[in-house]
Design a protein around this nucleic acid. Sequence first.
DNA 1: TGCAACAACGCAAACGTTTGAGCGATTCGC
DNA 2: GCGAATCGCTCAAACGTTTGCGTTGTTGCA
Lengths: 339, 339
Amino acid sequence: MASIKEIAKAAQVSCSTVSRALNHKKGVSTEVRDKIIKIAEDLSYFPHSGARSLVQNRAGVIGVIIPRTSEFAFQSPFYNHVLLGLSEMAGRHDYNLMLIINDSRSYTSFYYRHQVDGVIVVGNRINDERTIELAEKNVPAVIVPGFPEGEYQNLATVNSENFKSTHRAVSYLIGLGHRKIAFVLGSMSSKYSFERLEAYQKAFREHDLDYDPAYVAESDFTKTDAYRLMGELLDLDQPPTAVICINDTLTPGVLQQIFSRGLKIPQQISVVAIGCSDLLDLVLPPLTTVRVPAEAIGQTMARVLIQLIETGHCNKRHTVIPTDFIIRESTGPAIGQGG
Amino acid sequence: MASIKEIAKAAQVSCSTVSRALNHKKGVSTEVRDKIIKIAEDLSYFPHSGARSLVQNRAGVIGVIIPRTSEFAFQSPFYNHVLLGLSEMAGRHDYNLMLIINDSRSYTSFYYRHQVDGVIVVGNRINDERTIELAEKNVPAVIVPGFPEGEYQNLATVNSENFKSTHRAVSYLIGLGHRKIAFVLGSMSSKYSFERLEAYQKAFREHDLDYDPAYVAESDFTKTDAYRLMGELLDLDQPPTAVICINDTLTPGVLQQIFSRGLKIPQQISVVAIGCSDLLDLVLPPLTTVRVPAEAIGQTMARVLIQLIETGHCNKRHTVIPTDFIIRESTGPAIGQGG
DNA sequence: TGCAACAACGCAAACGTTTGAGCGATTCGC
DNA sequence: GCGAATCGCTCAAACGTTTGCGTTGTTGCA
């Protein structure tokens, strides 16, 4: 409500001086500055962000795009944790978040329409032409996941260490004597499904073992489907002695199938979860987990984007965040296996 | 990038005409209008929202404040679903969402600093002075939950039907013969814990029964605490034959305690969940649930706020959204009870 | 023919802020 | 003690829109 003019009048100085005083720029004496600041507080003055963005070409807002249905975005712990990291880091640098969910329009149009300073895309699809447009129009942007073909000045990526972590988990299970290791994947159009499957295969090869494709199930990422698929896997003549769940959404479905059959974990089947959900922390026994650092992903994305916005370049265009492999009580030696 | 000026030059008209043409106001011939619109598209023009908000005093942005830690906000399905409803309804009316989580500053300052058109507070604490400030400064705002003392022109509330739904659930359990009905509450400083407990008590009174406070447990809203409390409840000399979980965060803890003891649901204990989490839908057996319509709450909040913003008043200052009581398979007749 | 009404458009002010240029007054260096 | 640098401040332009008012040209009506 109160504008810089009223403060200027009250303090008997010009607008310029008020602006400089409030922004702590030099060129204003301490007495005048203190006086102005006091008046501004008394009048409960807040700068008009629109006017400011007009002249400064900076809005102090980061656009966050989640190209998923709202349902999906808010149900998956991954997005929640990324948002958490984003909001934390953005807040620390005095940026706010503008949220766009399930908008079919171009990312670039969003950037222009809302005068955000940069754009973050969470859950980028492989080969989404909108990401390329973003890069070609030189919009400061950070995406997860994905490595675009070209090298663009203003486009950065953040990924989690999919291959390595999955590889470690599978190797661990093999080391425990497991050979029939079920792997409940999501859709293979998803980048990380693909990477993690490769890791799975490589771990088998490294131990001079063949892996049986029958134990790899491709789901549509829903709990229901995971429940169904796990049922099919357990109905095999040689049911798996271990199972890996590729993400948070699937894990409950797999677990419920196991629980419903009264199978003991880890005595009868070992379980490894990949994901970031805390909701599963209370599952008994505590699950051996590949923890995807979604919060750190969000933080990093925000940090890189802000650097991109403010300096026009970034130190690392492609960041890979390491995952943790946490061995807890849901995994144990395979039974009835040759070791 | 492209401004209205460039379009004006290209179309050989004045800025005014361009503005009028693009905003579909009258005073411009159809030929000129079409020409301008075409040029605007070719130049991929987007109006500068800052400049627009400067002169129109409207930003097209709704501020969403969640006065919780980021962890809490993003873990609880309630907030997620409210956000879902908000984003859906806001999008439909061409508003965007600006998200503020865990900001200790005044709500009013947020309103002014970011030139949002109105403010939504999700998870208002009883007697939070910041809400009152919002109302007193006449900022268009909608809050959940809560009924402030005074009647303020620009402050509206949305609540879910806490009392009625809980009452119905408890009555149902009593009808099934249950007498020792555990109730795992959250903190009593929370409005809905309080309301729901009252409903619980009233249901007992109405059936001419005394309720035993020993079965009411006040938690700190965490899974861990719920797990612990449910353990204590089951260790009672006369363990409960039914349990009601007051919200999504608690339910997994309670369930895990039950599962870990190998108790059969509903043969040995009936379970009623209050909440909106879909994650629990896959729990076996499917839970009898008081479904809190968080998504509808979000939608309603957005709708009311937009009305408040655009017309300066709203039809209903206090909206109460009904809850559903969904009877599924986790509840059954009490065993070893006199009926 | 004369005049009112109206449509289509341009002009310029206004929104609130930042910032380079400019201008006295004081201080500094030598 | 004189020019140069510095300080503290003001002026005014600029950012991109919208919009009331004015102007021109056309049409309608008597």
